[in-house]
Simulated scan of single mutants.
Amino acid sequence: MQILPSQPGVRVNLAELIEMRHRVREVQLFSTPSRRSPLIGLHHSKLRGRGVDFDQVRVYQAGDDVRTIDWRVTARTQEPHTKLFHEERERPIYIMVEQSQRLFFGSGQVFKSVLAAQAAALIGWAALGHNDRIGGLVFGDVEQHEVKPRRSKQSLLQLLNRLARTNQALHSELQANREAFSLALRRAREVLRPGSLVIVLCDERALTDSTEQQLTLLAQRTDLLLLPLSDPLDHALPAAGLLSFSERGAELELDTHNSELRQAYRSLGEAREARWQRLAQKLGVPLLALSTQVEMVEQLRDYLNAQRPRKPQ
Rank of each mutant, 00 (worst) to 15 (best):
L254G: 01
P92M: 02
I40L: 12
G129L: 07
Q101A: 14
R248T: 11
L197H: 04
A188F: 12
L170E: 12
Q168R: 13
K46S: 15
R91C: 06
N177C: 02
K112T: 02
Y94T: 12
H235L: 07
R193V: 15
L290H: 07
E247P: 07
M96C: 08
W125M: 08
Y94M: 15
S6R: 13
A15Q: 15
Q263Y: 08
R310V: 15
A289Q: 14
L183T: 14
D234I: 01
V138H: 05
P238Q: 05
L197P: 11
R150L: 15
V24Q: 00
C202S: 12
Q307Y: 10
L233C: 08
A239E: 04
G136V: 04
A116Y: 01
A169K: 02
E260A: 15
R91G: 07
G63W: 08
L122H: 00
C202V: 03
R262G: 02
Q158L: 07
F245N: 05
V147W: 06
R50D: 15
S31P: 08
G241R: 03
L156T: 12
S244N: 13
R187H: 09
Q168Y: 03
R72M: 10
N167Q: 02
I3M: 12
L261W: 04
V66W: 10
N161Y: 10
R36G: 07
A126M: 00
L290D: 10
H145D: 15
L283I: 06
H44C: 08
D302Q: 11
F105V: 06
L217C: 01
A15R: 10
S37Y: 08
R25T: 08
E88Q: 14
Q154C: 11
Q61D: 08
E143I: 08
G241T: 06
Q61F: 07
P286S: 07
L128F: 04
L163A: 12
L170C: 10
L217E: 08
L197R: 00
A116I: 00
A169W: 06
N13W: 00
H86C: 09
E173R: 13
W71M: 03
G9P: 03
Q158D: 14
V12D: 12
P238A: 07
Q56K: 05
T292Y: 00
Q175K: 14
P38F: 01
R272C: 02
E90V: 09
E98P: 04
V198R: 05
G9F: 02
R11W: 06
F111Q: 08
V59Y: 00
R23F: 11
Q293P: 09
L288N: 02
A117F: 04
D65L: 06
G106M: 03
G195V: 11
G51S: 01
L163S: 06
P194A: 09
S246T: 09
H130F: 13
